[in-house]
């Protein structure tokens, strides 16, 4: 790792001030950023560790019934504390990485990084969650801008994520067993007025909504409605030694059908 200065603010305000330093980088749980820095694929003059900021940790429900999760909340906490309020999200959190990774990695870190195969972006987009920073609130529909790219500005910190809790939801993950990331995963969220389907792991542009499936499921929320669709276009899908684009496109359909079936 290249050398850097580590700053450990105890409050959000101190973190915002620390992030004003030149070439400052926020550090969430460090389960992606630290390995990347060790490989010298990333560096920073100042690393601002967010893990001591209690005010951005924890889970509550707001007046609109939305589940509000602090940006510094670990996957293990979501797995444990959302099991009743939003079981599909708890299940997603409990399948990220492994137990040790889940004790450090955070929802804010995952959403800020926007890995094209990360789990949380699928839940956030399928629920059109609101990503909250120190400056503003961003709808998930406007937040994910491509592989490792988001609407976040420099120095912006994810302080909270607000999920409208669906009537029914399921996250179906076809795991890549070496990395524990999804090869392809689909989050289906059914609301009283709409069905939303978000896909991760498949597209080289990162998480996306499968519009055809949403339209079909809005009229007929059943596995058969998905089975009647063509798989999404394989162009633009990730191709690697684990699976080519056509295989991933096929998996999108299969994972979506399984997710819908599991919602029933």
């Amino acid at each position: 790792m290249y050398d850097f200065e580590l700053v450990k603010p105890a409050s959000l305000q101190e973190a915002i001030e620390a992030m004003q330093a030149e070439d400052a980088q926020a550090l969430g749980g460090g389960q992606t950023l630290l390995p990347t820095m060790k490989a010298r694929l990333a560096m920073a003059d100042t690393l601002v560790a967010l893990s001591a900021i209690e005010e951005i940790k924890g889970i509550c429900t707001d007046d609109d019934g939305r589940l509000c999760i602090g940006g510094g909340t670990t996957h293990a906490m979501v797995q444990r504390d959302c099991a009743e309020s939003f079981p599909a999200l708890a299940s997603l959190a409990g399948r990220i990485g492994d137990p040790a990774v889940r004790n450090r990695g955070t929802i804010g870190g995952s959403l800020a990084n926007n890995d094209p195969s990360a789990c949380y972006p699928a839940a956030a987009l399928a629920c059109n969650a609101t990503i909250v920073t120190q400056n503003r609130e961003i709808a998930a529909d406007d937040y994910f801008l491509g592989m490792f790219t988001t609407a976040l500005e420099e120095r912006e910190i994810v302080t909270e994520v607000r999920f409208p809790v669906p009537e029914a939801a399921h996250y179906e993950k076809f795991i890549q067993p070496a990395s524990r990331f999804p090869l392809v995963a689909v989050f289906v969220a059914k609301y009283s007025d709409a069905v939303r389907v978000a896909v991760t792991g498949a597209s080289s542009d990162g998480v996306f909504r499968w519009n055809e499936a949403e339209a079909a499921l809005s009229g007929n929320f059943s596995e058969d409605a998905v089975k009647g669709l063509s798989a999404p276009d394989a162009d633009g899908m990730i191709s690697d030694l684990h699976g080519d684009g056509a295989y991933r496109a096929h998996l999108v359909k299969v994972m979506c059908a399984r997710a819908v079936k599991a919602c029933a």
């Binding site: 580590l6 450990k8 550090l27 460090g30 389960q31 630290l34 390995p35 690393l47 560790a49 893990s51 001591a52 293990a76 137990p99 040790a100 990774v101 004790n103 450090r104």
Partner: peptide, 15 residues
Amino acid sequence: LNGEPVKACSVLAQE
């Protein structure tokens, strides 16, 4: 770490 398993290669000591 505080009773929970973590990978010590991915945690900073000062943190």
